[in-house]
Design a protein around this nucleic acid. Sequence first.
DNA 1: TCTGGGGTCCTAGGACCC
DNA 2: TCTGGGGTCCTAGGACCC
Length: 422
Amino acid sequence: MDRPTAFALVDCNNFYASCERAFDPSLRGRPVVVLSNNDGCIIARSDEAKALGIEMGTPYYQVKGKLKAHGVVVFSSNYALYGDLSNRVMGTLAYAAPAVETYSIDEAFLGLDCTQADPQFARSVQRLVGQWTHIPVSIGIAPTKTLSKVANRFAKRRKRCRGVFRLPEEELDAWLDRVEVRDIWGIGPAYTRLLHKNRVYTAKQLRELDDRWVRRHMTIVGLRTVWELRGISCIPLDRAKAAKANIMCSRSFGEPVTEKADLREAVATFASRVAEKLRAQQSVAGALYVFVTTKRFGPGPHYRNHATVTLPVPTAYTPTLVREALRGLDGIWKAGIRYKKAGVMVQDVTPAAQVQGDLFASAGQAQDASLMAVMDAVNATYGRGTLALASTGTKRKDWHRKEGHRSPRYTTRWDELAEVRA
DNA sequence: TCTGGGGTCCTAGGACCC
DNA sequence: TCTGGGGTCCTAGGACCC
């Protein structure tokens, strides 16, 4: 179904909170919130928690007392659980509908033909997901993806819709008049400011804007949004999820890190996690990026420093990625700084199949190695030059051209500690 | 004291080549 | 002496998403 006649956006309600609830029915009807990494801030709220006026993204410490006073059940996040339940929801959707695009951990677009573009069908999907996964979902139906997002908002907010809403094409103007521009998919804070400055406040006004003006000030992306609001589908259903072009693993630290050994351990962990993700999508990376930052809030100075390391050979081999990440870290680490966050990102990611030789096979061998074993290997080889790697033989077309950019062997770049605007 | 962790796409401008 | 233009690749930065 390349050209569906309509789209449905299926969105899990309060997903993380619903996941916790799916496993503990006694939580039904009670306010639930889920916290981010390090229990830093609130990233999910059940309806009951929302009703108490608890805002998304609020730092936990600011509302701790309030949560306690209202008997709110608080969870640290459990991404393994959420990922698992997400897979079950998506699996159910794939069973129920012919064309599914998994858009995020808690959202999917369905491509609908003319027999399915009605609330009846959506209701049956909603029921099935509820029965099979215990996750409540809302479904918005409309002629384009952007409008299905709008429809989904109404599905969620209008109680009598019970989570299903089809945007009536005949009355589009009247409905879009009630949608603020900031609530449109694709319109963020910067475009909201720009549009307000030009006295555009609603989706209806946005879709009446002149194409040339939109193109000039909001790029082609903004123009697509405007056309989609007019009911012209510009963003197709994308059923195959593409391999990631960048893969990152980063964390904020609960306590500031000042010891180099601690930072090395963290960066080694991030690099090995990245290597796992890389292998999971059958890819190898050509470069990696390491960064460290101080805290972002409160009085300065705030610093961010980073290094890019071009790998001699694209690889997904854990010890190599860990070693190179540590090499990058060594270039940017400075004593006497309280680091609050660090991360590793691999770039220039290509399918492993494009690189001949046994690079990928050898990567697999490291897959089950414990982090300690990896660290041992790293420590054994670190600073002694290269770890023995498979041949560089390759038939990749653009490889030889790119090869020119890869000399000398390590094109490591690191910047002086840069002050970040507070 | 305490503030998430991922990603994508587009554009402008400079380097370089012919 | 005068003085080109088209094309590609790369990078940084800005916008957005969940």
